[in-house]
Write a protein that binds this DNA or RNA. Structure first.
Length: 643
RNA sequence: GGACCGGUAGCUCAGCUGGAUAGAGCAGCUGCCUUCUAAGCAGCAGGUCAUUGGUUCGAAUCCAAUCCGGUUCACCA
């Protein structure tokens, strides 16, 4: 039970008693009171004037009087300003909260609720190392999983690895052609980076081979093409010659892009890659062996990155094992009449009634597409775990895909359909736009982590506050701070918004940042170190009778809101809710810590004006520390005892 | 063109289930380390909440239209 819900329930009872109106607690607006007015929480009374038939002020007075008379253990006083009823919560209420929180020892962990969710995140391709975009995905997925757990859910963290397809064949082919047998072991290059390097190599060759073909086409020469493709390319060429197209830059760029794409497909190296993909699908032993070897290099690299990032999974899925799934669903769909077959034998679903298009599910040759395997995988996951919700952490460019996926599953009456939830997040962009591998602007995840830790180390060194730390402790501290800065940076923004990352400026460690909060935590721990565990232990049964000073109350109130914040974060699937809260809490503690009047620190724990105040403040500090620690844990961020 | 998302301080973002005078951080300017940690604190300055209209006691928040930016609408994944 929270204060806000207590107040809402009391207000609902008041309305029932005074006006005989069945107003539910959920319909009552309760906010924190603005600092310029007296009170802690405020009820907005405007909505009640309809049936009170009094002015807002009178309605507020009547409600306030009733509440202080009938809920005296909750509310001790009130004042009314216009339509706002400001309530003063009984000071014992706050004290009781502090003591209960202290006694329970574990803040922000709700008991198991018997509900099960799967969170799929990360889901990398195995042809390239992880980059900045993946980091947002990984941190989001991990954090949302933590948030669900804290709210009492059972969580399965899943990773669907895209380990097959043309992209990995590109790396494999380039390796075969140019690597002379190099391995991570012989070169000392991390496996995922080595494989990524050959992917880049492939793209370079591809570009070289495509260029003459493209320039031929642009000059009206089509010798590299035949059949339908030739017709298509000629059509594009002719379209490009039209004066109205040449005047329209957007249009001509689009046509040129298509010409480039078709030309790239005509290159020798691309043809080889396609052959390799066919060999892979046919189970060619040599190709399969190379595939296994190179993927294993990538997994070693990924494992290292994941371990460093503190990211883990309960269940791995591999597309090489799931890409053929979904065909039976299509068969069933055809039988149910939800799907239909065209003359060329391809299978479709008609979603025009839903304002969407027709969507292909099986090609004419019977092979499946991305959507088909996702349908099958959705069923597989559900068969594996029977979870009530299946969350996909995937960038917002796939919004349409997931909308369609859910819709099709609903139409097929799959039991997993209702639980499908696309946690869509915005891309991380550079100041000049999206990261482009062809332009070499991709920010590598490992490099960024290194950089962050180095920055943290430089700061730690400069501040010189960690005398007596061993080498190992120092390394661990800098890793905690560097990673904390990075995770917080990527999680503090609302997931659905795209965000800008400027690699020129390193991620800040002051202000609204992870290190700021970590620092605040370490500072509290430093205060607490002055006192023994016995000092803390006797606090639980201590009854505090003195009045609460403003910032003592403010901190208690903030800590009391934590449960509600956790629920909101889970409901919204938004770690940023917690990031904002943790910052506010840390910031408030810092003000509390530094508040000075007439040359004295008025909230000093050590030099408190009385024994009871010392104990109360120690308790508040301890509770604040636990709440900060748990908040940061929800973001996958550790907090140091000293920094 | 259809669908979806976004537009709040110089910059990066909160606030959006309607509530009191729109908040942080960074950057800029002032102060504060004989103090339980200055990765901190206090303060100054900075706004037609894209535009217009509507809904009502009340709109950054809801609705409509418009403008700007993005994503997507592949027999790619």
């Amino acid at each position: 039970m929270s204060v806000v819900s207590d107040i809402k329930n009391a207000a609902a009872a008041a309305i029932q008693a005074l006006y005989q109106q069945p107003f539910t607690a959920a319909d009552i607006a309760v906010n924190t009171t603005k600092p310029e007015f007296e009170g802690e929480y405020t009820i907005v009374v405007f909505p009640f004037t309809k049936f009170s038939r009094q002015k807002p002020e009178e309605t507020g007075q009547a409600l306030g009087a009733w509440l202080t008379a009938n809920y005296a253990d909750l509310i001790t006083g009130f004042n009314v300003v216009k339509g706002f009823l400001n309530l003063q919560v009984r000071h014992q209420y706050w004290i009781r909260f502090v003591q209960q929180a202290h006694a329970s020892r574990q803040v922000g962990q709700k008991p198991a609720n018997g509900r099960k969710v799967m969170i799929e995140y990360s889901s990398p391709n195995t042809n390239k190392p992880l980059h900045l975009g993946h980091l947002r995905n990984n941190f989001l997925g991990y954090s949302v999983a933590e948030i669900f757990k804290a709210n009492g859910f059972e969580v399965i963290k899943a990773n669907l690895v895209n380990d097959r397809g043309i992209h990995i064949c590109k790396s494999m082919l380039a390796w075969q052609l140019f690597a002379h047998g190099d391995t991570p072991a012989t070169t000392g290059i991390k496996g995922d980076h080595l494989v990524g390097d050959y992917y880049v190599h492939f793209e370079t060759i591809l570009k070289e081979q495509a260029e003459p073909i493209i320039s031929d086409v642009l000059e009206g020469e089509f010798k590299d093409f035949d059949g339908a493709e030739k017709e298509r390319i000629i059509k594009l060429y002719q379209a490009l010659q039209k004066p109205e197209v040449q005047a329209d830059e957007e249009k001509s760029t689009k046509i040129k892009d298509e010409i480039k794409e078709i030309s790239r497909n005509r290159t020798e190296i691309m043809q080889q890659a396609k052959i390799m993909l066919q060999q892979w699908e046919a189970g060619n032993p040599e190709v399969r062996a190379l595939w296994q070897t190179m993927n294993s290099w990538v997994y070693e690299g990924f494992d290292e990155t994941y371990r460093r990032l503190g990211i883990d999974f309960d269940k791995m899925y591999y597309e090489s094992q799931t890409y053929l799934l979904g065909k039976d669903l299509v068969e069933e769909g055809l039988r149910k009449g939800v799907l239909f077959r065209k003359e060329d034998n391809s299978v479709w679903i008609d979603l025009t009634a839903e304002g969407l298009d027709e969507k292909l599910l099986l090609r004419g040759d019977g092979t499946s597409v991305y959507m088909t395997q996702d349908l099958g995988t959705a069923r597989l996951k559900y068969d594996d775990y029977h979870m009530e919700q299946s969350v996909y952490v995937v960038a917002d460019e796939q919004n349409y895909h997931f909308k369609v996926l859910k819709l099709i599953l609903e139409k097929l009456q799959e039991p997993c359909a209702d639980g499908i939830y696309h946690l869509s997040y915005g891309m991380v962009e550079l100041p000049h736009g999206r990261m482009k591998s062809r332009e070499g602007t991709v920010v590598d995840a490992d490099d960024l982590v290194d950089e962050m830790i180095a920055t943290a180390a430089a700061n730690t060194e400069e501040l010189g506050k960690v005398k007596g730390f061993s080498e190992e402790e120092l390394r661990e501290l800098n890793e905690t701070i560097g990673l904390g800065a990075m995770k917080f940076f990527l999680l503090k923004v609302d997931p659905k918004k795209k965000m800008i990352f400027n690699p020129e400026e390193s991620i800040d460690m002051h202000g609204f940042t992870g290190p700021f909060i970590q620092y605040s935590y370490a500072r509290i721990k430093s205060i607490m170190r002055e006192f023994s565990t016995a000092d803390l232990a006797v606090l639980a049964d201590y009854t505090h009778e003195e009045a609460l000073l403003p910032m003592e109350k403010e901190l208690i109130m903030l800590c009391e809101q934590f449960d509600g914040i956790l629920e909101e974060a889970q409901r919204e699937m938004s770690p940023s809710v917690i990031a904002n809260y943790a910052f506010l809490l840390a910031q408030t503690f810092n003000s509390f810590y530094a508040k000075k009047e007439q040359g004295k620190y008025i909230y000093s724990v050590r030099d408190a004006e009385s024994d009871s105040k010392r104990k109360l403040r120690l308790q508040i500090a301890s509770l604040t520390a636990s709440t900060i620690k748990q908040s940061m844990k929800m973001l996958g961020i550790a907090v140091p005892e000293r920094m």
